[in-house]
Amino acid sequence: MDDSSSTGYLDRISALPDDLLHAILAFIGDAHAVTSTAVLSRRWRRVWTHAKNLAFTDCQEKYDAPGHFVGFVDWAFAQRGDDAGLESLMIRISRSIRTGSTSPQQVNGWLRYAGRRVVGFVDVQLWA
């Protein structure tokens, strides 16, 4: 059953062309917010996996459990698959106890991912 026919709701977001959806995602930038767009409509569930710009910053409250930030970055990269290229990727990692420690192996994996899929700008920062 189509949601729009049963509730009278018209899903106008799903009617937008892919190019416009990707332009909207480019303005968002923050990876957590970009992936959250999947709840907007059925059509958006996988649209974020083709976003051209992603920024991961672990100092945000949403990564309060140790290892959550690392797990989220790994999950986001896995969801994007091999075909989705990026124009820019930014990863900012804090060494705080709150977010847990990110291992050199994890960062190396992210850099390998960036080397294969980012055609433009890569910015990886570690601060205390």
Rank of each mutant, 00 (worst) to 15 (best):
86 L>P: 01
51 A>L: 01
47 V>R: 04
55 A>D: 07
60 Q>C: 05
46 R>W: 07
34 V>R: 03
101 S>I: 07
105 Q>M: 15
23 A>Y: 11
101 S>M: 11
40 L>N: 10
97 I>N: 09
75 W>T: 13
101 S>T: 09
98 R>K: 14
86 L>M: 07
44 W>I: 07
42 R>F: 06
91 I>G: 02
68 H>A: 15
44 W>F: 05
48 W>E: 01
24 I>E: 03
57 T>P: 00
21 L>P: 01
76 A>P: 08
30 D>C: 04
26 A>V: 05
98 R>H: 10
105 Q>W: 11
54 L>S: 08
75 W>P: 00
26 A>Y: 12
35 T>C: 08
93 I>N: 02
72 F>N: 08
103 S>C: 09
57 T>I: 14
62 K>A: 07
18 D>R: 13
94 S>L: 03
21 L>W: 04
6 S>C: 11
6 S>F: 14
104 P>G: 13
43 R>N: 06
25 L>E: 00
100 G>E: 06
87 E>H: 07
9 Y>M: 10
74 D>F: 03
57 T>R: 13
47 V>K: 05
65 A>G: 02
86 L>A: 00
60 Q>W: 12
96 S>W: 10
55 A>R: 15
22 H>P: 04
78 A>W: 00
85 G>S: 13
79 Q>F: 07
53 N>D: 15
84 A>R: 02
14 S>Y: 06
103 S>N: 01
91 I>D: 00
35 T>Q: 15
17 P>L: 08
14 S>P: 02
32 H>R: 14
24 I>A: 07
32 H>F: 14
9 Y>C: 08
99 T>H: 12
96 S>R: 14
49 T>K: 02
99 T>F: 09
40 L>V: 11
26 A>C: 11
59 C>E: 12
22 H>Q: 12
28 I>L: 13
17 P>H: 10
76 A>F: 04
41 S>N: 08
45 R>K: 12
99 T>W: 04
74 D>N: 15
48 W>Q: 00
31 A>F: 01
77 F>D: 03
39 V>P: 05
42 R>V: 12
19 D>G: 10
28 I>Q: 05
27 F>K: 13
83 D>W: 05
65 A>F: 10
75 W>H: 15
100 G>N: 00
52 K>V: 10
63 Y>W: 14
46 R>S: 11
35 T>D: 00
59 C>R: 13
